[in-house]
Structures are given as C-alpha cells and as structure tokens.
Simulated assay, not measured.
Amino acid sequence: MTVQDNGPDPNAFHIEKATRENDTYRTVAWTGKYLQVTLMSIPVGESIGLEAHPDTDQFLRLDAGSGRCVMGAAEDELTFEQEVSDGWSIQVPAGTWHDVINTGDEPLRLYAIYAPVHHAPGLVQQTDEDAERDEELGVDEPPAWTVQPEESQPDQHAG
C-alpha cells in the first residue's frame, strides 16, 4: 500500500494496513497544520532510540510485533516500563525521555502522531541512520505553514 502525504488537504487511508506493510524506519503519511502521522518499522533487536521532544506530545500505536516501552524524566531516570504488542498505545508527554525497543522476533510496526508537527512532509527515511543524518543536515524540519511553539527547543538524544 502506498501512502502519499497530501497535507494539509483532507486525507483518508487504511492506517492499520499501511502500518503493517510499511518497511521503512519512518514514513511521514500526513502533515496537518497542528499534527502529523508517521509510519514506523523497527527491526528485531533495535529501537526507536532514546530521545525527548521538549515541545511535542506523541501518541504511538503498535500494529505488529512486540517490544518494551520505557519513559522517564531524564535519560538515566526511566521509571516507566511497559511490555507492549499489537493493539497497545503509548502516550508520550512533551519533554519525556522515551524509547520503544523491539524485543520480538519480527519487525515492530507502529504509527506515531505528533502534535505539533515534527517532521518534513512526505519524508521517507529507510533507516534510523537516515533519520539522524536528515536531522543533522536540517532536512527534517516542519514546514513553515504548520503551527509551532513560539520558542521551540531542539530534540534531545541519548548518548
């Protein structure tokens, strides 16, 4: 199934089918003025990557695979831990350190909703290395027509 970001125009697609068929680390599926939908696939033994989005709330829903979600106030203070699998949702408040680790034997397939918009519209990143590179190069930025916090802070990454 091919999903094309036509935001901020109206859109509808079978999100579970698109999520289960997605084999990229991240594909931006739709970009609105206030929120964004991305599809993700995390290989066995890998993770989203421990990070915090200071100004962005995030909702994640798993549609295939199993893993472990960790969250907390600091990268070395991950006090929340939950085993997750198909059908589970994860709510990440802005500023919370979080990671989702694939502990299963198949790719972990999920979608994420960001509010406000967090990525460049229509961006496809095959791997997490591509995502890191795009962020460093400034390629992965929300479009000017989205509503962003007045004083935005950069994402934080562990390490």
Score class of each variant (00 low, 15 high):
34 Y>Q: 13
92 V>T: 04
127 T>E: 10
100 V>M: 09
107 P>L: 04
121 P>L: 09
24 T>S: 15
71 M>L: 04
113 I>G: 06
46 E>F: 09
17 K>Y: 12
137 L>V: 12
122 G>H: 04
25 Y>E: 06
53 H>C: 04
141 E>G: 10
142 P>A: 08
117 V>F: 00
156 Q>H: 05
41 S>F: 02
9 D>P: 10
51 E>I: 00
132 E>Y: 04
10 P>N: 11
110 L>C: 10
106 E>N: 08
98 H>A: 05
73 A>L: 10
102 N>I: 04
62 L>R: 08
123 L>F: 13
88 W>Q: 13
96 T>C: 05
44 V>R: 11
69 C>Q: 13
88 W>I: 12
136 E>C: 01
22 N>S: 02
139 V>I: 13
101 I>V: 11
24 T>E: 11
100 V>D: 00
124 V>P: 04
141 E>Q: 15
113 I>V: 13
47 S>H: 12
32 G>R: 03
9 D>K: 15
29 A>F: 04
92 V>R: 02
32 G>K: 01
139 V>R: 14
6 N>W: 02
71 M>T: 05
61 R>W: 12
152 S>N: 11
30 W>H: 13
3 V>K: 05
159 G>K: 09
115 A>Y: 09
101 I>L: 01
4 Q>D: 14
91 Q>G: 15
72 G>T: 05
104 G>D: 08
62 L>A: 04
143 P>I: 03
7 G>L: 08
29 A>C: 07
30 W>C: 02
139 V>M: 14
117 V>N: 00
44 V>I: 14
122 G>N: 08
41 S>Q: 03
39 L>R: 03
158 A>W: 00
17 K>I: 11
54 P>K: 03
91 Q>V: 14
18 A>Q: 07
131 A>W: 05
6 N>T: 10
147 V>L: 15
14 H>N: 15
152 S>Y: 06
136 E>M: 11
77 E>Q: 15
37 V>E: 06
20 R>V: 14
71 M>Q: 00
51 E>M: 05
95 G>C: 02
112 A>K: 00
49 G>C: 02
154 P>F: 03
13 F>I: 03
125 Q>Y: 07
148 Q>H: 14
46 E>I: 03
138 G>L: 10
41 S>R: 00
8 P>V: 02
124 V>N: 07
36 Q>D: 10
135 E>S: 09
158 A>R: 08
125 Q>G: 02
72 G>C: 09
60 L>W: 06
150 E>G: 13
81 E>I: 06
54 P>R: 05
17 K>N: 12
153 Q>L: 06
35 L>W: 12
138 G>H: 15
119 H>K: 12
46 E>Y: 01
26 R>N: 06
78 L>S: 01
118 H>N: 11
128 D>E: 15
19 T>S: 10
146 T>L: 10
55 D>G: 12
31 T>A: 11
142 P>K: 07
89 S>G: 13
122 G>S: 04
51 E>F: 00
154 P>V: 00
44 V>C: 07
117 V>M: 02
134 D>H: 13
142 P>F: 09
38 T>L: 07
34 Y>V: 14
20 R>F: 07
134 D>M: 12
151 E>Q: 02
128 D>V: 14
17 K>G: 11
50 L>C: 08
80 F>V: 09
127 T>S: 14
45 G>S: 12
89 S>A: 14
136 E>D: 13
94 A>E: 08
